[in-house]
Amino acid sequence: MRWAANEYGTIISRIDIVRSVEGGEPYQTLPFVRPGGDILLRISGWPKVQRVLAAIDAIEAIGIDPPDVAPEHWRHLNHRIGVNEPFRIYSHEQHHAWLLRREVSR
């Protein structure tokens, strides 16, 4: 999460959720992330950033560590919050399906 302020308050706020990549995988570059990563979510503007933070709090409240969440959920949040639409809440069932899918793809 990055933000900047001046004497009048916050002028920019941004949150990025990025997956680290294996050697040879394509990646996007981001400030302060070397060499870069797979951008799953990139939201700017304080009201939208607050919605992302609330979604992260909800994930933690059900006992799931946010880095373990399915990448598709972060992309879903990125698209829905980006256009001010409601989003699906991450569930234990969705998480279990992601863990099984990840295991099969290894």
Rank of each mutant, 00 (worst) to 15 (best):
R2E: 11
R2H: 10
A4Q: 14
A4E: 14
A5H: 10
E7I: 14
E7N: 15
E7R: 12
Y8T: 11
Y8R: 15
G9E: 01
T10Q: 12
S13Y: 06
R14T: 14
I15P: 01
I15W: 01
D16S: 06
D16R: 06
D16P: 03
V18Y: 03
R19T: 03
R19S: 07
S20W: 13
G23S: 13
Y27W: 15
T29C: 08
L30K: 06
F32N: 13
R34F: 11
P35T: 08
G36Y: 01
G37P: 03
I39R: 08
I39N: 04
L40C: 06
R42S: 10
R42N: 09
S44Q: 12
S44G: 08
S44H: 11
P47Q: 02
V49H: 03
Q50Y: 11
Q50H: 15
R51S: 07
V52W: 00
L53N: 05
A54E: 13
A55L: 00
I56T: 07
I56G: 03
D57L: 12
A58D: 06
E60A: 10
E60V: 09
A61W: 05
I62V: 06
I64A: 12
P66D: 00
P66L: 01
P66V: 00
P67N: 02
P67Y: 00
P67C: 02
P71A: 06
P71V: 01
E72L: 08
H73K: 03
H73A: 04
H76L: 02
L77M: 09
L77S: 04
N78M: 08
H79T: 13
H79L: 12
G82V: 00
E85F: 03
P86G: 14
F87T: 05
R88M: 13
E93H: 15
E93N: 13
Q94W: 06
H96K: 12
H96A: 14
A97H: 05
A97R: 08
L100F: 09
L100R: 10
L100D: 09
R101E: 11
R101T: 11
R102E: 09
E103I: 05
V104F: 14
R106H: 09
R106I: 09
